[in-house]
Simulated assay, not measured.
Amino acid sequence: MAQAGFEELVEDFEFLDDWEDRYRTVIELGKAMEPLPEALKVPATKVEGCASQVWLHLTWEGGKLHFEGESDAMIVRGLIAVLHRLYDGLAPAEVAAIDARAELGRLGLNEHLSAQRSNGLRAMVERIQEQAAAAA
């Protein structure tokens, strides 16, 4: 079971009839995120494998994951916000237990993202899971 914030997003998506509405919702989530400080946009936080520029800054506070992220593409920024709802505040073992593909599939993202966006999303999930494994 995913985080409460992610479950709310799944419920919201159930009321949106078409992908364009869902796409707009994802973009709005990205717009609502705080920008990542320039000092954190460094090679160590850059996610390779994404068509656009993507940075994820992950920290562990009190044994729980907290992360910030940013992208130069609005839809990718929104996908970072979706991942934030899925993972933020979880312990490493909880992060590892999430089947991101299945959870994101509940939003209908699998069928509607381009191959490049899907690869970038997969790269972001892998970065989060790798860091959780290292923290465990």
Score class of each variant (00 low, 15 high):
residue 1 M to K: 12
residue 2 A to R: 12
residue 4 A to M: 06
residue 5 G to C: 06
residue 5 G to P: 15
residue 5 G to Q: 12
residue 8 E to G: 02
residue 9 L to V: 04
residue 10 V to I: 14
residue 11 E to W: 05
residue 12 D to Y: 03
residue 13 F to Q: 10
residue 15 F to C: 03
residue 16 L to V: 12
residue 20 E to C: 00
residue 23 Y to M: 01
residue 24 R to P: 10
residue 25 T to P: 00
residue 25 T to Q: 14
residue 27 I to Y: 05
residue 27 I to C: 05
residue 29 L to Q: 10
residue 31 K to Q: 12
residue 31 K to A: 05
residue 32 A to D: 15
residue 34 E to C: 00
residue 38 E to V: 14
residue 40 L to G: 06
residue 43 P to I: 00
residue 44 A to G: 08
residue 44 A to D: 12
residue 45 T to L: 05
residue 53 Q to P: 02
residue 57 H to G: 02
residue 59 T to I: 02
residue 60 W to L: 06
residue 64 K to V: 13
residue 65 L to E: 05
residue 65 L to W: 06
residue 67 F to Q: 03
residue 75 I to N: 03
residue 76 V to R: 01
residue 79 L to Y: 11
residue 79 L to W: 12
residue 80 I to M: 06
residue 83 L to N: 06
residue 83 L to G: 07
residue 85 R to Q: 14
residue 85 R to G: 05
residue 86 L to C: 07
residue 87 Y to F: 15
residue 90 L to R: 14
residue 90 L to N: 07
residue 92 P to E: 00
residue 95 V to T: 01
residue 96 A to W: 02
residue 96 A to C: 01
residue 99 D to M: 04
residue 99 D to I: 04
residue 101 R to M: 06
residue 101 R to K: 15
residue 102 A to H: 14
residue 104 L to T: 10
residue 104 L to G: 11
residue 106 R to I: 05
residue 108 G to K: 03
residue 110 N to V: 14
residue 111 E to A: 11
residue 112 H to Q: 05
residue 118 S to T: 15
residue 121 L to V: 02
residue 121 L to F: 03
residue 123 A to C: 04
residue 124 M to W: 07
residue 125 V to P: 02
residue 126 E to C: 01
residue 127 R to W: 08
residue 127 R to P: 05
residue 130 E to H: 14
residue 131 Q to G: 00
residue 131 Q to H: 07
residue 133 A to S: 09
residue 134 A to Q: 15
residue 134 A to V: 09
residue 136 A to T: 14
